[in-house]
Design a protein around this nucleic acid. Structure first.
Lengths: 242, 242
DNA sequence: CCCTCACCTTGACCTGGATCAAGTCTGGGG
DNA sequence: CCCCAGACTTGATCCAGGTCAAGGTGAGGG
């Protein structure tokens, strides 16, 4: 809360981190957190600011520790494909060899933990478990991308939106899984981003959401807050069963 | 060439393997090849036979050592998205946690090297370098998938086909890169597979290829063999510049 | 409290690629 | 050598989603 932080705070930074349990940092024991902290640095990125440029040399990995981030690729004429949204605990930077295969920018104010490649190398040398954790992370992401390719290549607009809603629900975690009726959802990204994520236009996103509302599948409280009214049917649409 | 092979052949299998230099097996020293061979087994898959079932428990990794393989996901109604083609030296099985996120079947007769997860675990424990190599492999694949998502979400049919041709050219390696005019290409997969790979229908694939031919960009010798006549223009179309 | 700007929704129309329906080509078997 | 089946091409038509063009809407600033 104070603006001038004592130096020991640096070494304690990781223990209070929101990413502590879910991120790759869980591969490191509490007693070694000071090492983790010394190899990384915290950075705050303002809304809309890009912090990874597609094609630029890949020097760092990132862990999102606060706020949200969007990952995307661009075509020369400006067409954009958002390949993912990242939030608390998510790891960034695996999709790169010498240079990043994607760009990234903050969606709202975002807080990141930056790990230079050299630091990560020191860490994986010291904690072999971490390397395995990174591979797991990559595998998880590869699995997700398989599904996303099927969405982009083969699903209709309705199916894409339904799948997107299911993804957001799954992201809430086991929180309110007990009541599959009436799930409150917020969509923190503008329609433009949803469209670029689903390979659609903003108008189509808007129309399909309106149609879902008309059919009583969801109710739209305001732009960012919607309520899932018929979980099962949306789930069925997402799988292409309706 | 003999049908009954002496037992020592097993331990020698890896040293003559086509995947030796390009696959993950390059992370292991020559002197340890016997260990590698003892942890893996060779298998031959006939044309069209499926050997990974999407959603089934993931027990093995595979290295393609001969022939080709297609990787895909299915929707319940049969719509299919081919997420990749694998050939000599390619690694399969990273896109899985408890179960495979994809199915796989042979495209022509394929030869595979199978590594049970338990074996891979023993190998990575013994050769820490291998774990790093697996992560690299995952990163490479993640980078490729970023580009493929842009293709599926944002490119036109012409751009998709042009990108596909560029991919096949790049796959020839530095072989005939000296003469970027008149590149011989073979497309070992049927049109159906190209369509499912690019998120199009077979008719559109056929029409676009015919259009390319009409425009003098390629010439079609027969179904599987085409010649690239104007590399630069195809490259430009692939990037969305034309 | 109202204005304004950025974002979203809705409507009218268009089009790229899908669908439906014939042909055509090719290679293997009789 | 011819026939046949499977794979590909081509043409005609259709339609989901894109494009173009008005309106809404609501949060922040004056």
């Amino acid at each position: 809360m104070t603006s001038s932080r004592p130096p020991e705070e640096v070494h304690d930074r990781c223990s209070h981190c929101i990413g502590r349990e879910h991120s790759i940092c869980s591969a490191i024991e509490d007693c070694d957190l000071a090492i983790l902290a010394s190899e990384s640095s915290k950075m705050t990125v303002p809304d809309g600011r890009s912090f990874i440029e597609e094609g630029s040399p890949a020097h760092d990995f990132f862990v999102v520790t606060g706020g949200r981030v969007k990952i995307f690729t661009l075509l020369p004429d400006g067409r954009r494909q958002i390949t993912g949204f990242a939030e608390g605990g998510d790891f960034l930077g695996l999709a790169a060899s010498k240079s990043y295969a994607f760009g990234a920018e903050a969606l709202g104010t975002a807080v990141l933990c930056r790990f230079p490649h050299a630091s990560m190398q020191r860490l994986t040398a010291r904690f072999p478990n971490l390397e395995h954790r990174l591979r797991q992370e990559a595998s998880r992401e590869l699995s997700l991308l398989q599904a996303r390719m099927t969405l982009l290549g083969r699903k209709t607009a309705r199916e894409r939106l339904a799948t997107f809603l299911m993804e957001r629900i799954r992201l809430l975690g086991a929180a309110c899984q007990e009541t599959p009726h009436q799930i409150e959802l917020d969509l923190p990204m503008p329609r433009t981003d949803i469209a670029d994520y689903l390979g659609l236009t903003i108008e189509t996103v808007s129309r399909v959401l309106s149609a879902f509302k008309r059919e009583g599948l969801i109710s739209i409280r305001n732009i960012t807050h919607i309520t899932i009214m018929q979980f099962e049917r949306i789930s069925a649409i997402a799988e292409g069963l309706e």
